[in-house]
Amino acid sequence: MFEARLLRSSILKKVLEAIKDLLTQATFDCDDNGIQLQAMDNSHVSLVSLTLRADGFDKYRCDRNISLGMNLSSMSKILKCAGDKDTVTMKAQDNADTVTFVFESPNQEKVSDYEMKLMNLDLEHLGIPETEYSCTIRLSSAEFARICRDLSQFGESIVISCTKEGVRFSASGDIGSANIALAQTASVDKEEEAVVIEMEEPVTLTFACQYLNYFTKATSLSPQVQLSMSADVPLVVEYRIPDIGHIRYYLAPKIDD
């Protein structure tokens, strides 16, 4: 028996918003520690890694490890039926071919349940190697989303260049070019608005705008985002989901042919 209950359905709704542009289907691997999802996007350019820890749920029970293969567009349709303040419970029997979502209104006066067919998905076993990054940059997630959106108007790629003075985002194309430089903040009133850079050595890498924009769909999950970069390895864009886990996106840098 698997059962996971969240007091607010909004977290799960936001998680789904954050992955459904990249993945059409995915396997949620559930065990004692919580729920894990790891999948390459449809075009195999990026990888999504989601962790929701058992202790972040209001109630969590997983008697046997279970993999729930879900069609994300169907799951999204079902979650749209939940009110933001509703409690959501995901349930599945061992070896089940369906999963059930139960939504309960705050006053318990409305209880809905939706059963969804599970899919048998080919499991792709990927390993994420421990990596030391040359630069990590922490900034406001809303600021990062804004930068990606603004620079997308200029070209298909964004160059991210990190030095100890700050980080610079650039794009160029037919209409001209754009540069946004953020200095490391000396002091701020709100911690989430700070720009914090940790740098071993400077790095400049180029990434596809389209993917960075897909990643920023996770903005509402966290006030801050962390970018980790090293030469010739995928960029990590990490959103920490308060009290329950994180979502990380890995994107290969563009390389000149």
């Binding site: 390459m40 596809a208 390895v233």
Partner: peptide, 14 residues
């Protein structure tokens, strides 16, 4: 194609 090579090499089967 090179982008895909970078990502698959990085996440090679454990």
């Amino acid at each position: 194609a090179k982008n895909q090579k970078v990502i698959t090499q990085f996440f090679k089967n454990p």
